[in-house]
């Protein structure tokens, strides 16, 4: 339970010392599905982060914890402690507390990161994804998905989220706006970076860096650059050979090092979360829409599959795609207006 009595806010089960916490920070972070508190364990006084879930256990939290617990214990991996359900059916996820994460770091830092800082974070981040760390991970059959690595690299450079969608559809619209519909369009992405450089002073990306970004943000997962190849990419690899120079006080101060550690943690959880989706990225656009069409019923006990040879199926696919395309177009039209275009970039 959460009691808002003066400065005292207690969380957990009063009758169980081991599941009882005291809030020590007025308000930490609030999202739409959860709120995060900082608290002390009442018995051990250990500082923890507590995430309260509003509607039971959300999909993202479940995936996050499942990913975290499947990784071997590692100082750079945030520790999941337990789930506490109180007598009023409130859900609390107890995690190791980190003073800073990458998002807060970027919010606090007024100037955009310089290229070296971005490379340094990317490099540490990639080490985190390397097979070395994941060897003990429980089960992952697909290659690690590098798409979110590209998103984070772009975010580090732009100092803003690359694809800002509030729902799946908007997210897809955003991706089309930035990367183009169909074959990725380098020009649009480049324009975004040029605009950021002139307006906020974001560092201008080198040709090599842009090349890496393009390869990370490749639509087809078969063609997308792998973690291993990224480590050998010309834009990143020079840093691998001289990691010590990055940690000298002149290059990075202590606080920055801490932020980098947190960044790796964040990155790892993000990558873990997405690996499950890797194998079907390229088809997810189509299949998601087809499978979510109301009234589509597959005969029970048979696994759903799409028959592409059946004309009725093709007609249905066309209809759904047409419907989604018109929705998408409306979204894109609105977005395009915001961005100063006269017509939707799709048309």
């Amino acid at each position: 339970m959460v009691e808002e009595a003066g400065f005292l806010n207690f969380i957990g089960n009063k009758n169980d010392d081991h599941q009882f916490f005291e809030r020590n920070h007025p308000q930490y972070d609030q999202g739409s599905y959860s709120i995060i508190y900082r608290a002390n364990h009442r018995k051990t006084l250990e500082i923890v982060a507590i995430k309260q879930e509003f509607h039971g256990l959300s999909r993202s939290t479940l995936r996050e914890i499942a990913a975290l617990t499947s990784l071997p214990r590692h100082p750079a991996v945030i520790e999941f402690k337990e789930v506490v359900v109180d007598d009023r059916d409130h859900f609390f996820i107890i995690m190791e507390h980190l003073e800073n994460d990458l998002k807060r770091f970027m919010d606090v830092k007024k100037k955009p990161l310089n290229l070296n800082e971005v490379k340094c974070i990317m490099n540490q981040f990639l080490e985190g994804v390397s097979p070395k760390i994941l060897v003990g991970a429980e089960a992952y059959s697909c290659a690690i998905d590098m798409w979110p690595v590209g998103c984070i690299m772009a975010e580090l450079l732009l100092k803003e989220v690359l694809f800002k969608g509030r729902c799946d559809l908007e997210q897809i619209a955003q991706i089309y706006i930035v990367l183009g519909n169909g074959e990725p369009d380098d020009n649009r992405l480049m324009q975004k970076f040029l605009a950021a450089t002139s307006s906020t002073g974001a560092p201008s990306v080198t040709e090599l860096g842009f090349d890496l970004l393009k390869k990370l943000l490749e639509y087809d997962p078969e063609k997308r650059i792998t973690a291993e190849a990224t480590l050998n990419h010309g834009d990143i690899s020079p840093f691998l050979n001289s990691p010590s120079s990055l940690h000298t006080p002149t290059a990075l101060d202590k606080a920055y090092d801490d932020y980098v550690c947190d960044m790796i943690t964040l990155a790892k959880s993000k990558i873990q979360l997405s690996y499950a989706r890797d194998c079907r990225d390229s088809s997810s656009l189509r299949t998601t829409f087809v499978l979510s069409e109301p009234g589509t019923q597959v005969i029970p006990t048979k696994p759903p599959k799409l028959s592409y040879g059946d004309p009725r199926e093709i007609a249905k696919l066309d209809r759904v795609m047409g419907y989604e395309a018109s929705l998408l177009d409306r979204h894109l039209g609105a977005k395009a207006q915001e961005l100063g275009h006269k017509t939707s970039p799709l048309t």
Partner: peptide, 22 residues
């Protein structure tokens, strides 16, 4: 929903959060 949410947690902890088996 409440019952199911609690059951989810009971199952998760019984399975030790190992949700990606071979």
């Amino acid at each position: 929903s409440k019952t199911l949410q609690r059951m989810e947690i009971l199952i998760l902890s019984t399975l030790q959060w190992r949700m990606n088996p071979v």
